[in-house]
């Protein structure tokens, strides 16, 4: 397949994923997202719980059927609903690392079985060299190869997340979707896992979508950062721009709410407290989704849904720009 270098590796166009919850009620979990991931790039995706960031990740890897819109991988349009063959083919290319290292590993499989399952199925490994390969992967993610016949419950949270990483990467994918890979871990262990991901990204040339709610960590990890609110992106741009010079009022209040580990800064700065809570994503009205909580809303915000438009190096969906 011909694939030009400057073309994005993954291109998401107008992606929607709706869930019907009752008759006449539709939950707009992902509602028209445009996003592209370039080769060897880390894109961070932040937003509050329920904003649809995990659903977006799961829809990209095909765990959810697309309601509408398209995802292109290396220029090829991916099916809107995956069959068994699609999963088999595409799981070698796009993999996912899950949030909860406790429930995402099968408790009845040993670490060896968990890591080797994919590569054996794809014929990358044989029964003959499987043990050596699993051993290599365990070493690579910083675990002891001698522990490969243990079960997940015998490991700590951080160690399990390393197993989850080895499981996803043993297939040598090109793209990894990380859905809150460090949220369940302690601070000291978070740094271990982030550094490991970064090192593997460099050595394997991975492209990463890093979904998280921890703004500081996402800014640190990613090249570009996307901010999601109620199913759509409100801002996308270079991470430092988005964090240090946020444009969208929602991004501004997210950054202002993010407590920083510096008492002089924290106890002196003004805390702009955002009023209210995220409204329900069921049967959304037209207009800007943030209008009800926005301190800067104007009349147009109530009626016209703002589209993403370029401002400087970023894109922002807001009538103020």
């Amino acid at each position: 397949m011909n694939h030009a270098m400057n073309q994005p590796l993954i291109e998401i166009k107008g992606l929607k994923r709706h869930f019907t919850i009752d008759k006449g009620k539709t939950l707009h979990a992902v509602d028209g997202v445009n996003l592209s991931l370039h080769q060897n790039e880390v894109v961070g995706l932040v937003g509050e719980s329920g904003c649809g960031k995990s659903t977006l990740g799961r829809t990209i890897v095909g765990l959810y059927e697309k309601t509408s819109g398209e995802v292109f991988y290396k220029g090829e349009k991916l099916p809107s609903r995956y069959g068994a063959k699609d999963f088999r083919r595409l799981s070698r290319e796009i993999q996912m690392i899950f949030q909860d290292p406790y429930s995402s590993l099968n408790p009845r499989m040993t670490v060896r079985e968990i890591i080797a399952e994919g590569p054996l199925l794809h014929g990358l490994w044989t029964n003959h060299n499987m043990v050596a390969n699993v051993g290599n992967w365990l070493r690579r993610v910083g675990l002891d190869p001698e522990h490969m016949s243990r079960y997940p419950h015998e490991f700590s949270g951080g160690q399990r997340q390393r197993i989850g990483i080895a499981r996803a990467l043993a297939l040598q994918p090109k793209v990894v979707i990380c859905d809150e890979p460090i949220s369940a871990l302690d601070v000291s262990v978070q740094a271990q896992v982030v550094n490991l991901l970064e090192e593997l990204k460099d050595s394997m040339g991975l492209t990463v979508l890093f979904i998280a709610h921890d703004l500081s960590m996402v800014r640190y990890v990613s090249d570009r950062m996307a901010v999601m609110y109620l199913g759509s992106l409100v801002e996308l741009g270079p991470s430092n721009d988005v964090y240090f010079r946020p444009l969208h009022p929602y991004t501004q209040s997210l950054v202002a709410s993010n407590p920083e580990p510096d008492p002089i800064h924290e106890q002196s700065r003004e805390h702009v407290v955002l009023k209210g809570e995220v409204p329900s994503p069921v049967n959304l009205k037209p207009g800007c989704r943030f209008a009800g909580r926005c301190p800067k809303a104007v009349a147009a915000c109530q009626t016209v849904t703002p589209q993403m438009r370029p401002v400087g190096a970023s894109q922002v969906a807001c009538h103020l720009y």
Binding site: A256, H271, L274, V278
Partner: peptide, 9 residues
């Protein structure tokens, strides 16, 4: 969430 956290704090 962080914005709610800020309200509670």
């Amino acid at each position: 969430d962080v914005t709610i956290q800020a309200q509670i704090l």
